[in-house]
Design a protein around this nucleic acid. Structure first.
Lengths: 202, 202
DNA sequence: CCTTAAACATACGTTTTAGTATGTTTAATT
DNA sequence: AATTAAACATACTAAAACGTATGTTTAAGG
């Protein structure tokens, strides 16, 4: 039984280090020797626990990356009761961005990086990333719908369209920010989104 | 003199095929043998004309990719005289997207792909891509400023903030679209941006 | 305690790629 | 026409990566 724990622990170690390298260097630039050097384990350990890099990639998406999006951006949208919804949305999409670490600013969004790097070339990754985005879009749409119902957001707003614009702009900006060294882009993004949200708020 | 022409022609051939492969497979996944197979030339030809893949990458960015953005998205913003500027912007950012080829839908934006794939890891690419984006942001900001001056856009709008939101959302959506197989995302994006533009128009 | 299997480590074979070096052809110059 | 240099082609080297095969250690179970 204790062996199971050890196995799980090394698998998690490999997955965590893999995530960090995928995030820092990209999936394609990361090699299995790269990963195992970070873990201080051998190549034998890697192939004992995983079939190949692709399997690791899928588990990183389904685990670490999905959880990051869930914890950071989806779950916070779900407890909208007794809250002003435009304010909640503004908080999730613009306040949060201000407190990103330097790494998160320079390295962008792990999910969006993967989508752009191998989006159209790996159908298995594609499916996983798509259901992640589908979920995000869905939850945000529903939150916006609640905002409309609560008469906090204009009835003219199409919830899914707004959701997609918010998520799209957020990911786009996090990508473009990678080629800059200061926060001007983020600051302007916050301003522009605030204007949008204010204009559709009641 | 005719030799110069031939040299230029093969260089262009290599650059064009490189662009296609970078666009389709990504920069890192594209090898020099890959490129030369497409040109039906030998590896000797490659190293006769270029130092390495990185040099090709820089020339592809500065040439083909920059020109695509210029022709498709920057220059159309520059002749705003006698035009309704909100309409012009809407046209550039939403009408254009509807007529993308299937490849352009599945493969996203070449510039944004590169930004996300190697944005923070290659300082020379970074500089080139940044000046491209700077130019885009600048031209769009100025066009929006003209719209404000012409009393077609609300004075409450910060031109640079709006420019960055428009470009960011556009690139973000083009990225996310890569994991989908239909136009629902694009259609919702168009709707959401239209709402934004309409709300700030006078 | 002894067996056995899991958890690794080490070594190796194969393939791929970058880059070089050298050969050959073509075209410009004298 | 002969020379020369550019425009390629071919062959090769070295390094790196993937994946495997086989060894060794550790821990669980009878």
């Amino acid at each position: 039984m204790q062996q199971d724990l050890k196995s799980k622990k090394t698998q998690d170690l490999i997955l965590n280090k893999s995530f960090e390298l995928f995030y820092r260097k990209g999936f394609n630039k990361t090699t299995i020797p790269d990963i195992m050097k970070e873990t201080s384990l051998s190549k034998g350990a890697f192939y004992h626990h995983f079939k190949n890099k692709k399997e690791v990639g899928k588990k990183v998406i389904n685990g670490i990356i999905t959880n990051r999006i869930l914890n950071g951006f989806i779950n916070p949208l779900m407890d909208y009761k007794n809250k002003n919804i435009p304010e909640l949305i503004l908080n999730v999409f613009t306040e949060r961005i201000k407190h990103f670490s330097e790494n998160e600013k320079l390295q962008g969004c792990p999910a969006n990086n993967l989508i752009n790097e191998i989006g159209c070339n790996e159908s298995e990754f594609r499916v996983l990333l798509r259901s992640l985005m589908d979920n995000w879009i869905d939850v945000l749409s529903k939150t916006i719908t609640e905002g409309v119902k609560a008469k906090q957001i204009s009835k003219n707003v199409n919830p899914k369209a707004l959701a997609i614009c918010l998520i799209g702009s957020f990911e786009g900006i996090r990508g473009i920010r990678k080629i800059y060294d200061n926060d001007e882009l983020f600051n302007n993004y916050v301003l522009g989104i605030r204007t949008y949200i204010v204009n559709i708020s009641i």
